[in-house]
Design a protein around this nucleic acid. Structure first.
Lengths: 335, 335
DNA sequence: TTGAAAGCGATACCAA
DNA sequence: TTGGTATCGCTTTCAA
């Protein structure tokens, strides 16, 4: 392994000069700079990350605690992770991947062993046990998602409440008066994932505001379960003319079931989905809906957390406005 | 931050004694051990990871280069990542996440800056440019997937060739003589991902061996594209009585199209899929097929790579046998 | 069974 | 504009 001392020797200068040249933290004569650059190239020198971290108290790595479970909307999680990893590299940082399972102890560990400069935490739950710890530790952090007790912490998220409202507003605007919302798997609500709760709350408030009839229920991904659920709910409320689906895993089953019931989309029933654009356009009928701008949020999270690391005290929380895209699955309610 | 010196002082012993006590690398009197344990607990001491790494030349972190793209079978990738991350933690290691996009330079970087002890590389392609670099660098590594020029490197993978054969064998055994295989998106073949090529090759060799008629084509996830493709291929070869699908993203569309064409599964046409169990059982008809044991492979990769780190020269490559699970989507070919 | 001290490979302060 | 060197927090050799 080639060290900074090797470079210094090779270039005939001192170690500190090499260090300063590389960091640019003090002026170096063009001549010296050139000699050092040559030596670096010739020897193929790269600073040892651990030594650098130890001396500078900066690891240039970010912890990312991500929910790697199957029950969630996996593709969206993946988009978050991809966006974060890419953005981190653009800012010359690496990602240390922690699983949700490590929980509070994971956060403590990376902090106390000084493994990372900051942490990005995904999938926030109501009364999330990690939040008080993060607050107390004072480790720079950004939450992706938020909840009531997130006060004092910086977070960024899609405004899921307004996303639900956008869906309802759109349907109400088309004249729909009776809407069924199919939610995420019940496990998601049971652990009180912030985004699912926010979407459900937004849905409820929007239907109330419009004075229309709206109800919702969790839904599991099994085809038969979806099919039975949809059939039963439509039978109970035959006046239902629109569906909102906050569960990308069941879209195929929902559309299949509607066809089985001889309900055409959008002529007989409108469907709005919260899902990635890819998923939306790959269905039998291209779906109107809102997408989680996961990559954008991931990038924002990286930038927000790095600002904190750089000591910018003006850290601001960010709520991203949802954008509803019109496609083929919604239409005016038939008279 | 509390350091090893603080602990030593608090316990009234030397720094080296604390270090040896913690590492267990030399005998320590029970008395001393107890005192140190108390001090550690009382002060909440945790060794600084960077200092430890610098001194011991061991980072206790593994690089994982994962394909975080959308065109792939995202859930399976996620399972790999989850298995790897979990297994790594069980062995007291962390995961540094590299994106596929970093390519050769990513591998070089983590090696030359001494960021990690070893690397796990996913999604191997034919003539993968990373392989020669890995070989030359001598960084402990495990590939998930393999290819012709992987000689000298350790890898682990599902035997995709035999997986395809298992599917064909099963169908042939049921009397099917004309099979269509719907493959992954064409981009996957274009970049020559090892698993896709191996599956296709296995399919071809199996149909040849059985002397039956088999053909295959890539398939894109868009519903209409799938639908058109299936309809066209079945029209071209009306004797087709079985489908093999190596693309979990299109399963819903395939089944939907078959129904539209009034083909019942499995009475009129059998379907075998290579996809996660979850996906298989969540379709209208539960699908017979082979699953990638992603978590198991991920765990194996971690263990294999750690063995190398520990200097076990007997590193062995592993090819996991596929397991076909019978469900509702296959039946004897009707006379 | 324990301690002292020399590294590990950088950064950055203090001098010149 | 440059150099010398203490320092970061730990591991491990050498000595006792």
């Amino acid at each position: 392994m080639v060290t900074i001392a090797d470079v210094a020797r090779h270039a005939g200068v001192s170690v500190s000069t090499v260090s300063y040249t590389l960091s640019g933290k003090r002026p170096i004569s063009a001549e010296t700079r050139k000699r050092i650059a040559r030596s670096v190239a010739e020897l193929g020198y790269r600073p040892n990350a651990k030594a650098q971290a130890l001396a500078s108290n900066r690891t240039n790595t970010l912890a990312l605690m991500a929910p790697l479970r199957a029950d969630n909307n996996v593709p969206v999680i993946m988009q978050f992770v991809a966006g974060i990893a890419t953005a981190a590299r653009e800012h010359d940082h690496d990602i240390l991947l922690l699983t949700q399972g490590e929980g509070v102890e994971g956060v403590r560990r990376v902090r106390e062993t000084a493994l990372v400069d900051a942490v990005i935490v995904m999938d926030i739950e109501a009364d999330d046990a990690r939040l008080p710890v993060l607050r107390k530790m004072g480790l720079p952090a950004v939450l992706i998602g938020t909840t009531e007790n997130a006060g004092g912490l910086v977070w960024v998220d899609l405004d899921f409440g307004r996303a639900a409202e956008a869906c309802v507003d759109h349907l109400a605007g088309l004249g729909h008066r009776s809407i069924l919302m199919l939610g995420s798997p019940s496990a998601v609500y049971e652990r009180r994932s912030s985004y699912a709760l926010a979407f459900a709350a937004g849905f409820e408030s929007a239907v109330r505001r419009h004075g229309i009839d709206g109800r919702w229920c969790p839904s599991e991904p099994a085809y038969q379960a979806v099919s039975a659920l949809v059939e039963q709910e439509l039978a109970r409320r035959p006046d239902t003319t629109a569906l909102v689906v906050h569960n990308e895993g069941i879209l195929g089953a929902v559309l299949g079931t509607l066809r089985r019931l001889d309900l055409r989309v959008p002529e007989d029933i409108s469907v709005v989905a919260l899902c990635p654009e890819q998923t939306a356009v790959n269905q039998v009928v291209e779906l109107t809906g809102v997408a989680v701008p996961a990559e954008q949020i991931g990038r924002a999270a990286v930038e927000m957390v790095l600002r904190q690391v750089d000591g910018d005290g003006t850290a601001q929380t960010r709520l991203i406005a949802p954008q509803l895209t019109l496609r083929q699955s919604t239409a005016v309610r038939r008279a």
